[in-house]
Computed example of a mutant assay.
Amino acid sequence: MRLATLRRDGDTVAVRLDADGAVEIPGFADVGELLNDPDWTAIAARAAGRRLPLADIRDDAWAPVVPAPRKILCVGVNYRAHIEEMGREEPDYPTVFNKYPEALVGAGDPIIVPPHAADAVDWEAELAVVIGTRIHRATEEEAAAAIAGYTVLNDTSMRDWQNRTLQWLLGKSFADSTPVGPALVTPDEVAPDARIWAEVDGELMQEGRIDDLVFGPAAAIAYISQVFPLDPGDIVATGTPGGVGHARKPPRYLANGSVVATGIDGIGVLRNTVIVGS
């Protein structure tokens, strides 16, 4: 099953994405709200609201798949190829930091960069996990069962702000900087070795497989849940493969007008233009 949140008439609506269109799920403004109903799978499957042809959905109609998650957690240095390019050792435990909902934008929205953070803007294609059932102190099996689905997240990073201290939060959480979507795709529809990639202005920059993760989705979620509960709609981004701009020699960064596309086969593509401005 594929779910999304669409903007419509100044509001949003949760939809089920079928092969021939998006079907509104009446009574639910977004996917996060839907996931808070324990019967969300059946509700989405039987939804028969207004149908919109996929070809009629404009790029700017895709809202963040979960517009206001309670928590956004991110796992860093988690792809073996990325660990190698950054010159790090493979970690014994997941490196976890957080973002705030104000960072999120939709699949076709611009990435907004203020002038004071425009010198070292980097891309990071990531597999993100959306939680479907509340868990706390979960086993890996329980964590796997709590996954509602996967989506794509571009962990846009202001590297100069990120590396001012050992704490990465500020460089990762600029408002309107993190595209996520376009859809939540249930795990049964995503190959365990799906290709993940990023392009900048049409040039391939990142390419890997999601099975190159040191800590897979269930392991990362179970670990995080030992500290605090994870709730329906929470997002856990699992890290990025090799090919980021900061690790290149010389480094390469995004600039005003850059178009960055990030995607995972079987899930979808984010395509966002960088806008440097106030």
Rank of each mutant, 00 (worst) to 15 (best):
V180F: 02
A47T: 12
P187M: 03
A128F: 02
K99N: 07
S225L: 01
M205D: 03
T12V: 10
G266H: 05
G106I: 08
T262S: 13
W197G: 07
D122T: 07
P64W: 14
N98T: 15
A107P: 02
A143V: 04
N78S: 10
A14L: 07
L169F: 14
W62T: 04
G208P: 06
A19H: 10
R70Y: 04
R252V: 15
I83S: 13
P229E: 02
V66S: 14
G268F: 01
H116M: 12
A128R: 08
W161A: 13
A218G: 12
T156A: 10
G263R: 07
G208L: 11
R8Q: 06
A144H: 09
R137F: 12
L204F: 00
G149D: 13
V96R: 01
G268H: 00
F97T: 14
A22Y: 03
V214D: 11
V13F: 04
G181C: 09
A194T: 07
E203A: 14
T151W: 01
N36K: 06
D39G: 10
P229T: 05
L17A: 14
A48I: 07
S258P: 03
A63C: 03
V77R: 11
A138S: 15
E207A: 02
T151D: 00
D56Q: 15
A261K: 08
D56P: 07
T95Y: 11
P38E: 00
A47W: 05
L34Y: 00
T178L: 11
G263S: 09
A125N: 08
A175V: 14
I147G: 05
P187D: 12
F215C: 14
P232R: 03
H246V: 11
N272E: 09
P192S: 03
E189A: 15
D211N: 15
W123F: 04
L6W: 04
E142V: 11
G32I: 00
D109C: 10
L204G: 09
D155Q: 09
A191Y: 05
L230G: 05
I135E: 02
R2H: 09
D265N: 04
W161P: 08
T139I: 02
W40A: 08
L254G: 09
L73G: 08
R252S: 13
P38T: 08
A143Q: 10
V130K: 10
L127P: 06
T5G: 03
V13P: 00
A220W: 02
